[in-house]
Design a binder for these strands. Structure first.
Length: 913
RNA sequence: GGGCUCUUAGCUCAGUUGGUUAGAGCGCUACCUUGACAUGGUAGAGGUCACAGGUUCGAGUCCUGUAGGGCCCACCA
């Protein structure tokens, strides 16, 4: 057997086990009718992306769930894949083109798209490679891409079905236009930011009078597109103006003055200019009053030919400056005051959005939203934490139509075809389009130039990845999926839309029972949605590329190991709270890994010592020679198994992780392993030693199984060392199932009492600075119920005290005292009381009298405080009358026990004075 | 403006049906290289649980309000 290194070295084991699992197909899931599926679809990362801490958290959590379910007997299937990320990817490629001084128009559409595909071949799998380093157990054979053939078919199919149903329409609309990308953005892709601007007060002369109407605006340049002025119908200041005509300065266009309740009384001057082509609200207002729309910008937000010559070709901001000057020269600028307002910016390039009138495609969302709202409301889909359900419901009840066209080249081209006279339809190809349009088979036809919003493919993810629209068994078996783990900021972009799509398009597809689905239960895309925390840096800022505050997870893995990173992330991420992360925090996980490693090393050393090279089996618990410590750890273990399963069921991954930490570090390493040493190193018969080490290994084996979902690499490495696994893997081993027979509170109390004795002795040594090299005697009174048990279990206590012996490198020799008996040198002893049992440690010559007095006084004060609080309760008649009986009884019991402690402590203190 | 959320030890945070004098990790202090582990062990210091009311026998936990932080949605030209 090879020696294990003194510290755990992740680099030596991680890649080895990942290939082992992958080579043996252990990630792969298939339709298995006798097993319940557990399906997770990955939120597909962008092909432009590199692994961030957000991905680490998200994928660690998914892997924990998937590995846990896989070990628990489910057919666990985790479908991975990537997103083509239209705008982001096009951006990336255009950037590299720009380095060669080229623009996409230089190449033309076809060549450019070809280039993007090349780019995707080259760089698009980076994040997938990085994910493997994290240890994720994705079913890589099912990896999909939102633009691969199958998914493109799904996109087309969905578009055509919605189009034929009348749920997709084309319309002139004010969209959020990014002049940089020259494409429309959905409302959600616009970030609103506060900005310091000005409120310009411009005078509009009223025709046929000497009056002016003063209009306040933040964007004077849009006045070139004004087609009306508007006031509130109830505004007495301006009632007389309604129906009159104003003159647009500089342009001299005549503007009708209209009245509309949209105007907010009390804001600005009370008169608003109406620019239907360049403001979403004005657009609606303009439609209501049948105003003309004058578009003054081209697609790059430069002034077009519909404005006076001197402004044509100017950039919008340049035009603003010039216009302000000109208005001032004309005396039309009443005043300019500083003004803070919100402006919309492109979420990708931060360019200021221009509300722009253009032809776009939309999906009518209301008909789809109804069922999606219902399933969340009725709990068919559960959100964790559930407060997100409220956010979801609010958005869904106020849902607006979805602008799905994008004026870029990289993406799914809209499957709409036009005849030369403008008729159009949606079709799978040109021929089908001609048929649907009823034109000749050779008629000229052209496809829409636009592509679809990236989310138009990702909203189909839970079924398109499983082969839809082709009917197949895997789709029936793995959809609905089970748990979706995603960030709350894409609840509308993605989560809500997936619910709508799955419910709409899976209707009639056979379910697990082979019958066509009808019920909501079978139509939902997933049952649980876990919303991850947002990972922030230590200052609480969101991690972002531009801030450069996001540690590279690969560096972290390199430095600390994937398990350490996974553990730390899971440990730090409570359900529903943001996480402040820093690389150094991974020491927590690294130290834990090292602790586990050394526990394993210790057990293996002793196995070697006792068994030599003979192999052992850990198939079942070696139940011979069970002693108190064994019964105790078995109780603790089963408690841990129970709680672990419960916490994971409740999506409390951080709690499950904490539990692992406490069980392995404190219960197993601090106490059980230390107790086991008394047997490994003692003069027990060989068969007792054999049973002991085998049992310790068996417990450790169980602990590694519990650990595996969170720390797959180190658990597998150690698990393989514990016994000859004959080619098996921990990732396919059984997850521990609680055996309630082993949970034994009495034993835990007994051991707990002994621990208190040990703690008391340690406390004396620690506080009185008794050097470790100093041998001490320990006198223990046998007292009460536990006292009797102590006498019975004297051997265990000796063992426990032997533990002190090793820790302190000093002998601690227990002597049993009967009630009333006094230890020798009582006067010079330090003392403690644990659950009524007195301990004396004679410390003639070394003891500092003042120190011991202080120590006792401190302890008395603590216990006195406890007693006082109990007495306050018990002397309150209402408490005794109204509190539940068991609570009162517990208090009385406590009062009695602690009272005894207090008396003895006081007596001991008195002995000093 | 509407909604959500947070405020607990020096720092970062747990604490899900209200019931021991509130826990962890890091940091800090003291002691310890012992036959798994100094990425370790033992002991210790450190909190009027943001504030003010209320409900209750009992509140970190439930309710109301206040102050401060964060997020989301909608936006007034």
């Amino acid at each position: 057997m090879q020696e294990l290194s003194k510290t755990y070295s992740p680099k030596d084991v991680e890649d080895k086990w990942y290939s082992y699992w992958e080579d043996r197909n252990l990630f792969h899931a298939t339709v298995q009718k006798n097993k319940t599926p557990f399906t997770v679809v990955i939120p597909p990362p962008n092909i432009t992306g590199i692994l961030t801490m957000g991905h680490v958290l998200n994928n660690t959590l998914q892997d924990v769930f998937v590995r846990w379910k896989r070990m628990s007997g489910y057919e666990a299937c985790w479908v991975p894949g990537t997103d083509h990320a239209g705008i982001a990817t096009q951006n990336a490629v255009e950037k590299s083109l720009a380095k060669e001084g080229k623009h996409r128009y230089d190449l033309g559409r076809e060549k450019f798209v070809e280039l993007v595909w090349e780019w995707r071949q080259k760089y698009g799998s980076t994040i997938i490679r990085q994910l493997r380093k994290l240890g994720v157990s994705c079913d890589w054979k099912r990896e999909r891409f939102t633009m691969d053939e199958g998914l493109s078919d799904a996109v087309k199919e969905v578009f055509i079905r919605l189009f034929d149903k009348g749920l997709i329409y084309r319309g002139k609309y004010i969209v959020n236009w990014c002049p940089q990308h020259q494409t429309a953005l959905s409302d959600d892709e616009v970030d609103h930011e506060e900005a310091n601007g000005n409120l310009y007060h411009i005078k509009y002369p009223i025709l046929g009078t000497n009056e002016f109407a003063i209009v306040a605006t933040t964007r004077p340049e849009t006045m070139l597109g004004d087609t009306a002025l508007c006031v509130h119908p109830k505004d007495d200041r301006y009632k007389h103006l309604v129906g009159k005509t104003a003159v647009l300065p500089i342009v001299n266009r005549h503007l009708p003055i209209i009245a509309d309740e949209y105007i907010e009384l009390g804001f600005g001057t009370g008169v608003m200019k109406v620019t239907p082509a360049h403001d979403a609200n004005d657009f609606v207002l303009g439609q209501r009053h049948e105003l003309s729309q004058i578009n003054i910008f081209d697609e790059t937000a430069h002034l077009n030919t519909s404005v006076p010559k001197q402004y044509q070709g100017m950039d919008r901001f340049e035009c603003r400056r010039q216009l302000v000057k000109d208005l001032e020269a004309l005396g039309c600028m009443a005043k300019i005051e500083p003004y803070v307002h919100n402006i919309g910016k492109c979420y990708r390039c931060h360019t200021i959005i221009e509300p722009w009138l253009s032809d776009q495609w939309f999906v009518k969302m209301r008909p789809l939203a109804g069922p999606a709202l219902r399933v969340v409301h009725e709990g068919k889909i559960k959100f964790h934490p559930d407060r997100w359900a409220k956010v979801y419901e609010h958005w869904m009840t106020n849902i607006r139509d979805w602008c799905i066209s994008r004026q870029i080249w990289w993406g799914h081209r809209i499957p709409v075809y036009y005849t030369s006279d403008g008729a159009y339809t949606a079709a799978r190809n040109e021929n089908e389009a001609r048929k649907k349009l009823g034109v000749a088979p050779d008629a000229a036809i052209r496809q829409d130039e636009d592509v679809l919003d990236t989310w138009f493919s990702s909203w189909l993810w839970p079924f398109s990845t499983l082969g839809w629209p082709n009917d197949n068994e895997e789709l029936h078996y793995f959809n609905p999926t089970d748990t979706l783990v995603t960030a709350p900021d894409i609840i509308f972009f993605w989560v809500a839309r997936m619910v709508m799509a799955n419910m709409e398009f899976m209707k009639g597809t056979p379910g697990k029972d082979g019958k066509p689905r009808k019920k909501d239960d079978d139509l939902v895309p997933f049952r649980d949605v876990y919303f991850t925390s947002i990972i922030r840096d230590e200052q609480g800022r969101k991690m972002s590329k531009s801030l450069g505050n996001s540690p590279d997870p690969l560096d972290v893995i390199d430095q600390y190991g994937a398990d350490a990173l996974r553990f730390t992330t899971a440990f730090l991420a409570p359900l529903g709270q943001d996480v402040l992360f820093s690389t150094e925090k991974c020491e927590l996980g690294r130290n834990f890994a090292n602790k586990i490693w050394n526990a394993g090393r210790f057990l293996l050393m002793n196995k070697q010592e006792i068994f030599g090279d003979n192999e052992i089996s850990l198939d079942k618990l070696p139940a011979e020679h069970l002693d108190l410590a064994d019964r105790w750890i078995l109780s603790r273990l089963n408690q841990a198994i129970k709680t672990m399963n419960e916490k994971l069921d409740e999506f409390q991954v951080n709690e499950a992780t904490k539990l692992l930490y406490d069980f392995i570090w404190h219960d197993f390493c601090d106490w059980y392993v230390e107790l086991a040493k008394t047997r490994f190193y003692g003069d027990e018969p060989q068969d007792v030693k054999r049973a002991s080490i085998t049992r310790a290994l068996w417990i450790f084996d169980q602990a590694l199984r519990l650990l595996h979902p969170v720390m797959p690499f180190i658990s597998e490495e150690l698990w393989q060392h514990l016994a000859n696994r004959k080619g098996a893997s921990l990732m396919r081993a059984d997850f521990p199932v609680v055996d309630a027979r082993y949970i034994n509170q009495t034993i835990e109390d007994e051991v707990g009492f002994m621990m208190k004795l040990i703690d008391a002795v340690r406390n004396i040594r620690g506080e009185l600075n008794v050097p470790p090299s100093k041998q001490v005697d320990v006198y223990i009174y046998l007292h009460g119920e536990f006292g009797e048990k102590l006498a019975v279990n004297a051997e265990y206590v000796k063992g426990l005290l032997g533990y002190i012996e090793r820790l302190c490198k000093a002998k601690a020799i227990p002597t049993w005292l009967q009630e009333g008996e006094k230890p020798k040198q009582h006067k010079n002893s330090a003392s403690a009381v644990a659950d009524g049992t007195e301990i004396f440690i004679p410390l003639e010559g070394i003891i500092d009298l003042d120190a011991e007095r202080k120590r006792l006084e401190k302890e008395i004060a603590r216990v006195q405080g406890l007693i006082d609080s109990i007495e306050r309760k018990l002397s309150n008649p209402s408490f005794v009358a109204k509190a539940p009986k068991d609570v009162v009884a517990k208090e009385r019991e406590k009062q009695k026990n602690i009272g005894v402690n207090l008396e003895k402590l006081k007596a001991n203190l008195a002995a000093w004075s």
